[in-house]
Amino acid sequence: MSGTGDTAPGADAGELPAYAERVLSVAELIPAGRVMTYGDVAEYLAEEGQPEGLPAEGGGGRRVGGPRQVGRVMALYGGAVPWWRVVRADGRLLPGSELRALAHYRDEGTPLRAASQGSDDHIPKIDMRRARWDGRQDERDAPWDD
């Protein structure tokens, strides 16, 4: 995916679509050192009880997109927000942006797992069990642990 640079393609082309604004608002809420998957963001937006201040569309939490739509928004407009905090469910780093993302993860203390011995690229993965954030505003809450 593209659009993870310092400026988002099309960002100056006018007003963002409402769904894109909502996705980017969620990306900005994710605390440093934590992540949400594309699907997590879509589910978060589908919930009725969104935190005050998030733009609503169609009367609140009506679902208008899934993980692919969230990924598309991040690819097109995500450069203006902490894009590295919205990730793949398997914890693999965004192809083409691995090193930039890895630098952010290390700076923020995001939990990582070493690359498997059979891995060709030796790039670590995000430890999803420890890094995943559930959208609760209280940062003292634990990540999704089973």
Rank of each mutant, 00 (worst) to 15 (best):
G60V: 09
R85W: 02
Q50E: 02
R72I: 07
A131I: 00
V41R: 08
L112I: 03
H122D: 13
W133P: 03
Q137C: 06
A80C: 10
G61A: 05
D145K: 15
E108H: 05
V73C: 12
L94G: 00
Y44G: 02
M1G: 00
R34K: 14
I30D: 09
E48N: 07
R129W: 05
R34P: 11
H104V: 04
S116H: 12
A20F: 04
E15R: 02
Y44W: 05
P124F: 08
A27C: 07
G96Y: 05
Y38F: 15
Y77E: 12
V87L: 11
G118E: 08
P31I: 13
G10E: 11
S119L: 09
A114F: 05
T7Y: 12
D146H: 11
P55E: 11
L102C: 08
E98S: 09
Q69T: 02
A42N: 01
S2C: 01
M74D: 00
V87S: 07
A46S: 01
A89Y: 06
P95V: 07
E139H: 14
P95R: 02
R100V: 15
L112P: 12
A89K: 07
Y77G: 09
G79Y: 00
R68H: 14
A56P: 08
V64N: 15
R62N: 09
A115N: 11
R88Y: 15
G109Q: 05
R140A: 15
D138T: 15
